[in-house]
Design a protein around this nucleic acid. Sequence first.
RNA 1: GGGGUUGUAGUCUAGCUUGGUAUGAUACUAGUCUGGGGGACUAGUGAUCGCAGGUUCAAAUCCUGCCAAUCCCA
Length: 484
Amino acid sequence: MASSLGKEKSGITVSKNSDFSEWYTQVVLKAKLADYAPVKGLIVLRPDGYSIWESLRSTFDKKFAKNGIRNGFLPILIPESLLGKEEKHFAGFNPEVFWVTHSGTNEIGDRLALRPTSETLAYTMYSKWIQSWRDLPLKINFWNTALRAEIKATKPFLRTSEFLWQEGHTVHSTQEEAEKEVMKILDIYKKTVEDELAIPVVTGKKSEKEKFVGAVYTTTMESIMPDGKALQMGTSHFLGQNFSKPFEVKFADKDNVEHFAWQTSWGVSWRLIGAMIMVHGDDKGLVLPPKVAPMQVVIVPIYKNDEGKEIVLPKVDEIREKLESQDIRVHVDDREGMSPGYKFNDWELKGVPLRIEIGPKDIENKSVVIAKRHNLEKSSLGFSEIDKISEILDEIQKEMLKKAKEQASKNTINISDYSEFKSKIDEGGFLCTSWCGKLECEEKIKEETGAEIRVIPWDSENITQKCVYCKEQSKSVPIFARGY
RNA sequence: GGGGUUGUAGUCUAGCUUGGUAUGAUACUAGUCUGGGGGACUAGUGAUCGCAGGUUCAAAUCCUGCCAAUCCCA
C-alpha cells in the first residue's frame, strides 16, 4: 500500500500506451529535463536537459568543423525592412513573428523582429563580406535560439515559441557545389541522429507545398513517433539564388564577371530531444542512449551498517575510478537515508543507461549487479570484468537503435488504395503511397485525412503506378503522415 | 480559428454549491531504528489559495478581467 502510494507521487502515473501526451509531459518534468517558464510556450532547460543538448552540439561541432564550417553569432533583433526583403519568406513567417515596438518609452519606427530565422540578417552581412571568388565558399553556423509565436497548444521541446537550434548558412560560387553541401549536411544530420540518439530517420525531399519558404527545395529527415505521428527532425535547404539576388550576395569570378552566389541553409533544433524522449522512454520514465546521457553509469552502494559501509565503499571508489579513467561518465549515489529501491526507481525515472549495485553480498562473490535501463535486465558482472562496461554501453546504444528501427518499420506501411489510406491514417504511421505530383491532390488528401507529405524519399521516383487520389500516372512514392 | 476543463506548500490534494484566512498525503529538516525494488517511528518547517480588480463587516469560496496549463473540434 505504502509503496504504491509512493510510486504515484514521484514516478510516472500514466502509461505510454494509454495516454501518450500526458506521459510525455510527465517524463519531461519528472526527469527534470525542463520546466515551464511563466510565459506561454516558453520552457526552461534544466541541467539534465541542457546537458543532452550540449552533447549533441559538441558532436555536430566536430562534424561541421571537419567540413570547413565555423561558428559565428548573430544578434536576435532584425529590422522589419530587412526581414521583408524576400517577399515569400516574409509572408511565410510574418504570422508568428514577435515584434519589438519600443525602446524604453520611445516607439521604434522600423520595428524589430525577434528572429524567426536569420537568413535575412546573415545575408545582409554576407553581401558585405563577399566580393571575390576567393571569398568562397563561406560556411558559417550559428548556435542560437529562434522565436516563432505558437498560438496552438505547445509541448516542451516539440512546439515552443522559442527554441534552441543551430542554423547554418553557406555561400558557394556554383550551383553544383551548393547542392552538394545541402546533401553533405543532411548526411551529417542523419548519421548523428542515428548514431547518437539511436533514432532512425527517413531522408528525402519536401514537396513544393511543404518546403521552406524562400528555398528552391528542401531536404528533410523525418521520424515516426510511437503514437504514429511524424516528426521533422531536421532540414537542409537549397536556396539557389533566391536570397543572393535581393540581398546582393555577389562575387567577381575568375573571369571578372559578377555573379550572384548560390546558397544553402540548414538546421536542427531541440526537437531532437523531444524525439529521443518519445522514441525510447517507457512507463518508468526516460531512457537515455548512452552516448548522450549526462550520466552513463550510476553506482548504488548498499550496506546495512558502518561495517558494511567500510567494506563496500572502497570497492565503489575503485570501480568509479576505473570507469572514469575510461572516460565513462559515472556517478556514485551515496545519499544516506534512502532505500536502494527508492534510488533504483529514481535513476530509472531519469533514464541513466546502466546501474551498478554493489553491497556486501557482491563483495563476497567478487562481482557486482548491473541493471540495464533500456530493457530492465539485471545480471551480474565479475570484478575482473569491469572493463567490459564500456562495451556494454556500446551494445545498449546499438540495441536501442535496433529496437527503434523495428518499431519504425512496424509503423511504415505501403498503401495503394485511397479508402485503405483513409482507414489506416487514424492508426497513424508512415503511409507510403504513390502520387502524381500535383498540388491539388496533395491538398485534397490533407483536407480529407489530415495527412501531409512528410518526405519524398530518395529513389522513390515511380511512374509505373497510379496516384492514390486522382488515379493518374504517379511521379513518386512519398511518405504521408499526420505530423507534430 | 471555435469550444471545454483546470489553477490551493516543492508535488498531489480537501474545502468552493450554502463566504467566517485552509484538510490530508508526500517531499523537506532533525533524531533513532533501518537498508538487495519507492522503509518505520517521533518531532518540526513550509500556502498572503495563479495575478489584478469588484461585491461584502468578512472572499480560497461570489462577480469581472487577465495570465498560464490542458483537452476536443476545424
